[in-house]
Design a protein around this nucleic acid. Sequence first.
DNA 1: CATGTGAAG
DNA 2: CTTCGCATG
Lengths: 272, 272
Amino acid sequence: MPVVTLAGVLTVSTVNVNGLRAAAKKGFVEWLAATRADVICLQETRAEPEQLAPEVLEPAGWHTVLAPSSAKGRAGVAIYSRAEPEAVRIGFGSAEFDESGRYAEIDLPGLVVASLYLPSGDVGTPRQDEKERFMKEFRAYLEDLRGRAAAAGREVLVCGDWNIAHQQIDLKNWKSNQKEAGFLPEERAWLTEIFESGYEDVVRNLHPEGPGPYSWWSYRGKAFDNDSGWRIDYLVSSPDLASRCTDAYVERAESYDQRWSDHAPVTAVFDR
Amino acid sequence: MPVVTLAGVLTVSTVNVNGLRAAAKKGFVEWLAATRADVICLQETRAEPEQLAPEVLEPAGWHTVLAPSSAKGRAGVAIYSRAEPEAVRIGFGSAEFDESGRYAEIDLPGLVVASLYLPSGDVGTPRQDEKERFMKEFRAYLEDLRGRAAAAGREVLVCGDWNIAHQQIDLKNWKSNQKEAGFLPEERAWLTEIFESGYEDVVRNLHPEGPGPYSWWSYRGKAFDNDSGWRIDYLVSSPDLASRCTDAYVERAESYDQRWSDHAPVTAVFDR
DNA sequence: CATGTGAAG
DNA sequence: CTTCGCATG
């Protein structure tokens, strides 16, 4: 294991990069070089492998999995792992979504790690219907995954941009957003179901008090400077792994111009 | 007449701005404030009036005429004049092209000034057919214009991006461009006809020797730094006005990053 | 307000 | 290589 990681622990980060090409030019590469994470899940890569610079596509010391969307420039997830995956799977068995660059998972010893990019949705448009279809299908998949992983002696960690703030403490302006995609009652209830079904929100576990920590701030207006954010990026794990989480935090940039995405990395540390 | 202009002369500039909004941010506003021109013809404004900042739409001391295309973000011509026009006309009586933001003219005392943006064309595509249709219709209009203007006691000056280099001395790499739109034999012959029909190329009149002066350099490659340009922006005038032209030049930027368009202003000075 | 695409130049 | 429109976020 490379010396830069921490012995005895597993560190996992997830971040929606909002275009990996743009992020790479603005600081992602430096962040990648400095991080001590063992596994990194990316969302919204919005690139084909051929469009990526070598230091992004094949950074030294990392194994990379890319799952681009069949629609150019849209969605796309990736997983970077210092250890070589025992298996790689793209999609979750959905005819509609497996080519959409929204889900990939890898097997590591005793663990399945997934990168998820749930559709954003947009109330009153076909995007919201798409989000609902995805939620329904993915909910069933999570149940399936739990059983399969347990049978194989693996914990589960689904990291990504879930595009839903769960509770009032998960976004700054909850009152004005009750009818907006990302904080609809049915979306929140869907997350509640998942968290009551035996999956855990490891950041909230360690930070039961809000507000935040937020992981996304719109580029519009002064959202970042006002900390007018949303917590929509989660690391969702099976219970035993959750119980081994010793640290969890958002790597919020110090200033607006140090950002390389509208999301910040969310990182959790687990005892091995 | 404003003090910044030159007494006893009429100065006219023409420039393809390649997006007036972008140009305004990069230096067009400063150029406008500094110019001594009395009339300015713009092409490729690519904006609706509402999209323009006040200092561009209604600069102090200028009367402005905007002729946007009905296709958003495409083409568009404009005329800025320090004197109030006696009349304004958009289009040249063409069913196909009058809404396409490619022609506008104003009457000034003793003079008709027009801003023309001829289609660029692209060999082997419908764009080239469009260019040919435009050329045919516009050729007839020029004949008509000559007669009408003369009857009204006005000279004619048609300024703009004609998207055709006339002779070998009008582009750096004429050999490799003989089959490219903008230097096709039939396009060159069309310009020759116009110049032999009693319209004059005032810049070439004063600068019979080439190469150039070029007025456009592709953004691709190192065209500007290598002065690999084309002379496709012309001030085309009736003979009496042409005989009064005392100066004519291209305002080439000093360096690549001082440009605010891929074209440079072409300016001519006439004794009044 | 920002990232991509695609047409156009 | 650049502008702009549009879709998406």
